[in-house]
Amino acid sequence: MIRFDNITYQYENALSPALADVSLEIQDGEFIAIVGHNGSGKSTLAKHINGLLLPSKGSVTVNGMDTKVEDNLLKIRQIVGMAFQNPDNQLVTTIVEEDVAFGPENLGVTPSEIRQRVDEALHAVGMTDYAEFAVHHLSGGQKQRIAIAGILALKPQVLVLDEASAMLDPSGRAELLSTVKQLHDQGMTVLMVTQYMDETVDCDRIVVMKGGKIVLTGTPSEVFQHTDILLQSNLVPPEAVAVRDSLKAMGYPLSDRALNAEQLSEELCPLL
């Protein structure tokens, strides 16, 4: 379990805090999306989970371990794996399998077990065939899957994606998203920082951030009832939700569960 207790964080030379008194609890096995515009504090929040940033006020604990305690950091980083935005800037070595091995090597795992972990991790992201490829020959989506494999090799319990899909093309995003969903189905806690609202539709919970504060949390169908708050937070709801709202305004009795084309047409068609 991850707990943020009233955390505040201010970057050097910044006029206002990037996070202001934020509290949040993330349960084991949850799939949670953190959304917000650029500068809303969503990435800053994510970087607190594994102690990349330390709160100026308040505390962050992972399975009861405080990120402020230096000795906890290595353990916490083993529990919380983190993937970042630019697929190019997080792979350390030239060859795929050697990159995946980087994490467990840092932990001093035995060579035979590293081999096993690397093979398992590559299998989990569907990249076994690319084990001996050079990293720079892969597509963006493939690079991100390798980055995730590198995290899986640390056997984490929590996967944090800090805008990991932002630089990918639609097929790369789809690849990444389905990999992540699969991992979640196998019991991984997932925290996804994103600005693409359509990626959040299948989450357990969405947290909407604005100006360093949480302005809304709830299940997707709850959150997408509040299109007004989303728009005020400079976010754009998925197209299906926008259409649903326009239809509702015209008097069609549609439920809040209609979040994508399929669900919407299922409710709309009998009414036409």
Partner: peptide, 24 residues
Amino acid sequence: PSITKLCIEMNRRGIDIPRTICTE
């Protein structure tokens, strides 16, 4: 486009909406 996806779903459910519709 999202709207085309919606039209396809509606076609599948027997609603005769033209496929040339692709904007909100």
